[in-house]
C-alpha cells in the first residue's frame, strides 16, 4: 500500500492501482485580470489500470483505454466560491457508493458499456466533484465494492 498526499488530500493506493495527485493551473497565470488562487486546486486520479501520461481532468484519454474490469476515479476541486451552493451541499467524502448510483447518463466520455457517477460535496471550505467510471455497467456489483475499498483510503483536510 502506497500513500500519496499533497495539498491536504491523501489517498492509500492499493496494489495493482495507480494514482496521481496534481494541481490545476492558476487562471491568473493566463489572465492578469483574475485574482490568483489563495491555494492550488487539486486533481486526483486513481485507476486499476495503467494511467496514460496524457489525459484530462475527467479522464478523457484514460477511460477509453480501460477494459471491462477497469475503474477510473477523478477527484476535482472547485473554487471556494462553490462552497455553500446547492450543488456542493453534501458534506464530507462519501463513505460508500452503491452499484445503483452508477449510470451511463453520468459519463463525461460516452463509451458503450461504461457507467459513471458524479458526486459533488464539500469538506470545510473546499468543494469537490468525485467522478468515477467503471468499465462495465453489468459488472457494477463487483467493481463498485472494489472502488469502495480505495475510497475508504481517501481523506481531505
Amino acid at each position: 500500500m502506497t500513500t500519496l498526499a499533497a495539498h491536504g488530500v491523501s489517498i492509500d493506493v492499493p496494489a495493482g492501482w495507480e494514482a496521481e495527485l496534481s494541481t490545476q493551473p492558476d487562471p491568473s497565470t493566463l489572465d492578469e485580470t483574475v485574482d490568483p488562487l489563495p491555494a492550488p486546486l487539486v486533481v486526483l486520479h486513481a485507476a486499476n489500470f495503467s494511467l496514460p501520461a496524457e489525459r484530462d481532468d475527467y479522464g478523457a484519454g484514460a477511460v477509453e483505454t480501460m477494459g471491462r474490469n477497469g475503474i477510473f476515479a477523478a477527484l476535482v476541486e472547485f473554487g471556494a466560491a462553490s462552497v455553500g451552493t446547492m450543488l456542493f451541499a453534501a458534506e464530507g467524502v462519501p463513505g460508500r457508493l452503491t452499484p445503483d448510483d452508477f449510470g451511463s447518463d453520468q459519463l463525461n466520455v460516452a463509451v458503450p458499456g461504461h457507467a459513471g457517477l458524479q458526486h459533488f460535496f464539500h469538506v470545510g471550505a473546499r468543494a469537490f466533484c468525485l467522478y468515477v467510471v467503471i468499465g462495465s455497467h453489468s459488472r457494477r456489483g463487483v467493481l463498485v465494492p472494489e472502488f469502495n475499498r480505495v475510497l475508504s483510503g481517501l481523506s481531505i483536510a
Binding site: 502506497t2 500519496l4 496494489a15 492501482w17 494514482a19 496521481e20 496534481s22 489500470f49
Partner: peptide, 18 residues
C-alpha cells in the same frame, strides 16, 4: 514506483499485479 511527476505532483505507478 512511487515518486513525483516531473513538474507535477506525487504519483504511484503499478508495475506488479498488472
Amino acid at each position: 514506483i512511487a515518486g513525483t511527476v516531473p513538474a507535477g505532483g506525487p504519483t504511484k505507478v503499478a508495475v506488479t499485479g498488472v
